[in-house]
Simulated scan of single mutants.
Amino acid sequence: MNAQPLAFLRTILFGLFFYGGSVPIVIVAFIILPFSQFRLQSMARGWGGYHYLCARYILGIRVRIEGDIPEQQVLLAIKHESFFETIELLRIFNRPAVVAKKELSRIPLWSQIARTYGMIFIDRDGGAAALRKLMGEVRHFVGQGRSIVIYPEGGSIPPGEQPALQAGFAGLYKLAKLPVVPIALNSGTVYPRRGFVKYAGVVTYKIGDFIPAGLGREEIEARVHTAINVLNGPERKLST
Rank of each mutant, 00 (worst) to 15 (best):
46 G>H: 01
88 E>K: 00
17 F>I: 15
16 L>V: 07
66 E>N: 10
31 I>A: 14
55 A>D: 14
42 S>Q: 14
34 P>N: 11
27 I>H: 03
84 F>D: 08
72 Q>S: 12
82 S>A: 07
11 T>I: 02
52 Y>G: 12
32 I>K: 10
55 A>S: 15
24 P>S: 03
12 I>Y: 13
17 F>V: 15
60 G>A: 09
46 G>D: 08
73 Q>E: 14
10 R>I: 08
44 A>K: 01
67 G>M: 08
31 I>P: 12
52 Y>A: 14
72 Q>R: 11
73 Q>L: 01
12 I>E: 12
62 R>P: 05
79 K>D: 05
80 H>T: 00
36 S>Q: 11
61 I>F: 08
73 Q>P: 12
58 I>R: 06
60 G>V: 08
31 I>K: 00
72 Q>L: 02
34 P>E: 10
34 P>V: 05
35 F>V: 01
43 M>P: 10
58 I>P: 15
51 H>W: 13
47 W>P: 07
37 Q>W: 00
20 G>E: 09
36 S>P: 05
14 F>G: 09
60 G>L: 08
57 Y>W: 13
55 A>M: 11
93 F>C: 11
60 G>W: 05
35 F>D: 14
21 G>R: 02
15 G>I: 05
19 Y>G: 04
19 Y>R: 03
62 R>W: 13
12 I>G: 15
68 D>G: 00
15 G>N: 14
63 V>H: 10
46 G>L: 13
84 F>C: 08
38 F>V: 13
53 L>W: 14
18 F>P: 06
10 R>W: 07
62 R>K: 15
89 L>E: 14
17 F>M: 14
54 C>N: 12
13 L>Y: 07
10 R>S: 05
39 R>Q: 15
66 E>I: 06
30 F>Q: 09
54 C>P: 06
74 V>T: 09
43 M>K: 01
80 H>E: 09
13 L>C: 15
56 R>E: 15
76 L>C: 11
71 E>K: 07
45 R>D: 11
83 F>K: 00
65 I>L: 09
90 L>W: 04
54 C>A: 12
43 M>N: 11
56 R>G: 13
29 A>L: 01
36 S>H: 00
47 W>D: 06
13 L>A: 12
90 L>G: 03
91 R>D: 13
17 F>D: 06
24 P>I: 04
90 L>Q: 09
48 G>M: 08
37 Q>S: 14
83 F>D: 06
75 L>T: 04
36 S>T: 13
85 E>H: 01
92 I>F: 07
